[in-house]
Write a protein that binds this DNA or RNA. Sequence first.
DNA 1: TTGCATACATACATCCTGTATGTTAATTAC
DNA 2: GTAATTAACATACAGGATGTATGTATGCAA
Lengths: 189, 189
Amino acid sequence: MQEIKRRSQKERSDTMRAALVAAGRDLFIRNGFAATGTPDIVAAAGVTRGALYHHFQDKTDLFAAVVEAEAEAIAAEIDASGSIGLTPRETLIQGGEAFLAAMRSPGRARLMLVEAPAVLGVDRLARIDAATGGRTLELALQEVGIEAPGPLAALLSAAYDRAALAIDLGQPPGPWRAALNHLVRGAIR
Amino acid sequence: MQEIKRRSQKERSDTMRAALVAAGRDLFIRNGFAATGTPDIVAAAGVTRGALYHHFQDKTDLFAAVVEAEAEAIAAEIDASGSIGLTPRETLIQGGEAFLAAMRSPGRARLMLVEAPAVLGVDRLARIDAATGGRTLELALQEVGIEAPGPLAALLSAAYDRAALAIDLGQPPGPWRAALNHLVRGAIR
DNA sequence: TTGCATACATACATCCTGTATGTTAATTAC
DNA sequence: GTAATTAACATACAGGATGTATGTATGCAA
């Protein structure tokens, strides 16, 4: 009868881990990493700090899990809006639009583009979104015939990041989209 | 005889403040903001925490002072290398090169481009380097006839930031400079 | 020189982090 | 089916950091 007591270990563990990640995501987005204490997180999840330190090595490790989950969510949203049968340069522009759309989830830009590099380090974060879907831009540039697409992809990605941040901070998206289009079209000639 | 005791209040205060900023800069660059404690800073400066909290409201306030000083130093270096009598687009490229050169001071890129936005917030940091010399890029774009130079300047600035970071992380500068040239020339047609 | 303000040093309270230990429930071994 | 083991947490503890409150000495002004 009591299905609460009948949960398997793995199921219990998975839901708890997910609850901690969800609570952490919420608070990290609202207050940032430094201003969010582990007591706040576990209180929001309705547990104690023992649960947190059982599932994660430390607070940074939980944050990394939040960032990874967020990166996967972003990649999934972008993939979902990926229209097929476009020219390479159309794919480029459309992928950028999809990125901006995915980044309009409130606070997501600050979490992924400001907090994450500072907390996890630039290289570690780069590895995370390389593991999810960060190389699509590079491949698209290669399609349109750029010789060394790596650095240029990183630069354009940085430009998109900056635009997403500005929009997340409340600025109107129109001028940023226009400037991005200008930049991309100039880059692929 | 004892010139130490003969210092005026203002002189004493100024040197102390400068010493704290210098010690803070050194440690923030080496270990980052979060991993640097106020005991470390005052120990490096040879004083106690009382001095720090007399001159600054809190640890973040000291960090802001460090960032401001660094922004001024960067602006001064860029201004010093500013050749006159160039065409607007030459000025654009040359200014970018000067920025990259200024950013090769070890750890400076991470401090200003990763830590500072996270600790101070993007908007506050934007105000700081707008107060120093952050609008030169925007003016240069206006010179070459860009209609709305604001967003485009921000995007190109973000690209330069990304390149500076990559170079600071140890990557060879050549490909990044090439990609930046490609991007800028495409943007100004 | 007397009084006050400035420039620090010292002492203290609070909070947070990470770890060590304890407890309960689920899984495995026999 | 029961004992033993392990996983999943909760509780308790130690260390350190931050910010503030208080104390002290020196410069400065009347």
